[in-house]
């Protein structure tokens, strides 16, 4: 694995994927949040997993001001550095390319996000129930809240 100097790491990232990066946030010495275009997710994730040998930790899906945010957490175990790729998903068309074919660790969590938020993962090998079962209906998404834009349009 190439030794990466984390002081200049954000700049290297910008150099490699300039057009795909929408925002960069250095939170702490060892935490980086990168907002990316959702079309570029697989390419950038591949860069981290294959070239830099990061470990895929988990993904978290959440409500955002516009649609949903999904954060993919990656960890470099030799240094404890965490890179978090954040993508925004449109509420009207909640779709994103699945990562499960690239790394098996993403399989379960994508099914879970599909259940709790209703995000559709394209090309997922097995997008079926994981936790909901008889706990809630398939059409129901307990963690999803209508965003501010949607609420406004409902009111008017």
């Amino acid at each position: 694995m190439a030794a990466v100097n984390y002081e200049i790491f954000p700049d290297i990232l910008k150099l490699n994927f300039d057009s795909d990066i929408l925002g960069l946030m250095v939170l702490q010495r060892k935490r980086l949040v990168v907002q990316i275009r959702k079309e570029a997710l697989l390419e950038i994730a591949n860069y981290f997993l294959d070239e830099l040998k990061y470990r895929f930790v988990i993904a978290s899906g959440m409500n955002a001001d516009h649609g949903y945010d999904i954060i993919y957490h990656f960890s470099d175990d030799s240094t404890g550095y965490m890179v978090n790729l954040m993508v925004n998903i449109d509420e009207k068309k909640p779709e994103i390319e699945s990562m499960a074919n690239m790394i098996s660790a993403a399989n379960w969590i994508e099914r879970e996000i599909h259940e709790i938020l209703g995000v559709n993962f394209i090309n997922h090998p097995n997008l079926t129930n994981l936790i909901s079962g008889e706990n809630w209906e398939e059409t129901e998404h307990p963690y999803a809240r209508p965003s501010r834009d949607n609420k406004k349009s409902q009111r008017t």
Binding site: V57, I58, S60, M62, N63, S104, A105, N107, W108, I109
Partner: peptide, 29 residues
């Protein structure tokens, strides 16, 4: 194994989103 907690806060006194990943979630697979 590794327990991972992700917390998003919004300045109020409770988490806006709290994601928990227990180690068995990945180990069982």
């Amino acid at each position: 194994g590794e327990v991972f907690h992700f917390v998003k806060t919004d300045g109020s006194n409770s988490p806006a989103r709290h994601k928990v990943r227990a180690p068995s979630y990945v180990n069982i697979a």
